[in-house]
Design a protein around this nucleic acid. Sequence first.
RNA 1: GCCCUUGUAGCUCAGUGGUAGAGCACUUCCUUGGUAAGGAAGAGGUCUCGGGUUCAAGUCCCGACAAAGGCUCCA
Length: 653
Amino acid sequence: MMINITFPDSNTREYPSGVTGYEIAQSLSSQLARDILSITVNGQVLDITSPITTNATIKLHKWDDVEGKHAFWHSSAHLLAEALESLYPGMKFGIGPAIENGFYYDVDAGNEVIKESDLVIIENKMLELARLKNTYHRSDISKKDALDFFSQKNDEYKLELINDLTDGTITLYKQGNFTDLCRGPHLPSTEPIKAVKLLSIAGAYWRGDEKRKQLTRIYGITFPKQKLLDEYLVLLEEAKKRDHRKIGKELELFTFSANVGQGLPLWLPKGAALRERLENFLKKIQREHDYQQVITPHIGLKELYVISGHYAKYGKDSFQPINTPAEGEEFLLKPMNCPHHCEIYKSKPRSYKDLPLRLAEFGTVYRYEQSGELHGLTRVRGFTQDDAHLFCRPDQLKDEFKKVIDIVLYIFKTLDFPDFTCQVSLRDKTNHEKYIGSDDNWEKAEQAIIEACEEKKLSTIIEYGEAAFYGPKLDFMVRDAIGRKWQLGTIQVDYNLPERFELEYIGSDNQKHRPVMIHRAPFGSMERFVAVLIEHTAGKFPLWLTPEQAVILPISEKYNDYAKKVLKLLNNSDIRAVLDDRNEKIGKKIRDNELKKIPYLLIVGEKEMEMNEISVRKQGEGDKGAMKITDYIDFVNTEVKNMLQYEINNDNI
RNA sequence: GCCCUUGUAGCUCAGUGGUAGAGCACUUCCUUGGUAAGGAAGAGGUCUCGGGUUCAAGUCCCGACAAAGGCUCCA
């Protein structure tokens, strides 16, 4: 019997029933047959050795496809497990999936401790096993047989996994001496796995549950060619050079001190200047959107957070209350600004005509993050939110939400952040206990966000269980240099705090109504935003933002006086320039200042002094020739102005 | 918080139980130069901190603190 196989380009060919992906590839070209790693058949990714018995639409996956790499790395995870089982007999296995870059396996080594120094030994074992070219053999198995097999092996983790599976869907894969519970797909054999690197070792809770046993997770990556591995390792090294912690130190933007405390950044003059410019940039946008700046204290009475619900939720895990000489009086360092802003809302009666009321504050907050979570500027214990709370009528909610989306998109555009994802964070579908507020309000809030995103034509991904405990949110996620995802901007709809604080306004019907609240922070926090900005720009900040825009380099000390004159002219014209009047040769000064990533190097010597000029060298680009000082000032000021051209088209950014 | 790893000069790092090192940065002097490293000399250390083992500890062991990679968490 023949079946029709349809290819991605819609061409169809006939093959005998039972044909495999490998055979199909072979019929097209022998090179393709060597390269294919997995196959999608009617939307399902399968082994290339799986027989196809019905008419099907297929796609063959090579190394360049995610599905191809996935099969490759998934098979590599099994290879790792095989190596571990042979080196550590009796080891128990958790799960071992392919991930975005490579794979991991979670194992329980019993009393053995696997150390980083053991990784090379394991790598070598993997390569040794790979060279045996063992096939990955798939078998369907009944639940009972599966349970028997892993009982005999005494592998409680696999038993737990099997118990959650339904009979008839259970498959095992075996290569060499190792058999694993697995859905597949896998490579036909270990043959293509030519290069192996085990990257790191970590603790990981079984099934992600902090209360359960911590297994040992081994991360690795494999490639079909040694050259690809070498390139990947170079790429990793390059990425590490963009690390904001490294660049922050080199460019003297921020530092930490063990005496001040973990996770409490100290902003150095250049970092503070940069941050201040970012704040002014946002303040200007907010002024145009009728936000009003407010200022609130860094502490608040504990009762304030009891009202908001934050105390019940986070009180135990926060910086503990500050006591005063007054008996029983307790203050908390503020972990967020919303309760303070609610009190501002309540400071006088509000009419529907006053809404939306938009209160903004660069508010510094303190959260006692777990010590193991702290990370440079991206996760800290004291940070400043570019916060604002929008109090509006229910009918204004969607419009307000959309206007905030515009602001976030404008900021990302101005700062040239191309790769962000919009994540709609909703409640956990099943577990509603983690959240406060009525189902009705939650549904309204979730609906408003989804509709606003649709109307702004944002492509979003929806994540259940990622909402804040008081409401759903839209998060703007950006990756750092080594691919970790961080939440930057966030917009959150909240029906709950207005209730808890009993916020009201008088409607046109002369009745009391409850406003809806939007929490929003386009940067997220100044700390995290600057961190990600550093990694995206590798420290080469846009001209309008960078701490030092130009450095003047006299050819020799004879021209220092002229250089000082130029410096004064530039500084008086709002250009942030500095002078390098060290007794060094010009080549040396150029090198040093290029490394400091200052956008313009202005060289002055005899020629320039005579002509009232400067020679302009652009960072990373080289000599641009001589210019009159006044022309240069105009040029820079125009460039800065163009970068900050403020125009938001509400419908189309 | 948990698992693994690390901590030596301002920075990057060498130093495998027996006198504390290098490069860069810094200071002084020579040099006064034309688009990515001129030369010489000098200064700089409680080897993170506290215990222990040893005739002897930067080095081995224990603890604390901090940092890195991950898990969990993230208002």
